[in-house]
């Protein structure tokens, strides 16, 4: 049986806002009337580990996790992290990549290499790839912490969920002093697609 629910994977590094974006997205989806489920892996994210959230939404959702080859969208907050999840994407799925490279200790210590020319490789592999330096854009809006909202903006557009009042949801879920920057970053993201 074909699965009817849509699948989204958000991946990145602890502290980048993966969990916040997944929370905003799922709350919004629920309010739009979808059945929604999510599963998260934090691992030891405080210790700079990889973090991910998998989201499924539709008329009825059973498992929260996305099966390989069935994801509609991957949002990678860190470039190389996208590699861990590529095989979960549908052949015609969309990949959104934050053009940010964060080297783990293994690379810093010279034990491993960070993959080279990754943007070109990803673009060649997946037709619908969007690579954007969200961190830089967010920095211009007032805080690098709003980078996640740029990525959320692009995602909402790509998933055709633009009709929902996302800015109100963002306002409700981020601390007051960052609200304006976050909303501006979100709107910037929307405008990119």
């Amino acid at each position: 049986m074909k699965q009817s629910a849509k699948g989204v994977i958000i991946c990145g590094i602890g502290g980048q806002g993966v969990v916040l974006v997944s929370n905003i997205l799922t709350e919004g989806l629920m309010e739009m009337g979808f059945d929604v489920k999510k599963t998260e892996e934090h691992g030891m994210s405080q210790r700079n580990g990889a973090v991910n959230a998998q989201i499924k939404f539709g008329a009825k959702v059973f498992a929260p996790a996305v099966a390989k080859g069935s994801g509609d969208l991957i949002i990678a907050f860190e470039k190389a992290e996208s590699l861990r999840w590529l095989e979960y994407l549908r052949p015609d799925g969309c990949l959104i990549v934050n053009d940010v490279e964060i080297e783990p200790v293994s690379v810093q210590a010279g034990k491993e290499k960070y993959p080279e020319n990754l943007s070109e490789i990803l673009r060649a592999e997946i037709a619908d790839t969007i690579i954007i330096n969200a961190a830089e854009a967010a920095f211009r809006m007032g805080t690098i912490r709003a980078q996640s909202m740029v990525l959320l903006g692009i995602s909402v557009k790509k998933l055709e969920l633009g009709s929902f009042a996302w800015t109100a949801k963002i306002r409700a879920m981020v601390p007051e002093k960052y609200q304006e920057a976050n909303i501006n970053a979100f709107q910037y993201g929307l405008s990119l697609v």
């Binding site: 030891m44 590699l83 095989e87 783990p104 293994s106 491993e112 960070y114 592999e125």
Partner: peptide
């Protein structure tokens, strides 16, 4: 049989946990 999927030969570097 599973869905068609993409696979690249390059791997993401390990992110072993470490003291903050």
């Amino acid at each position: 049989t599973g869905e068609k999927r993409r696979r690249l030969d390059i791997k993401a570097p390990e992110r072993t946990p470490n003291f903050c």
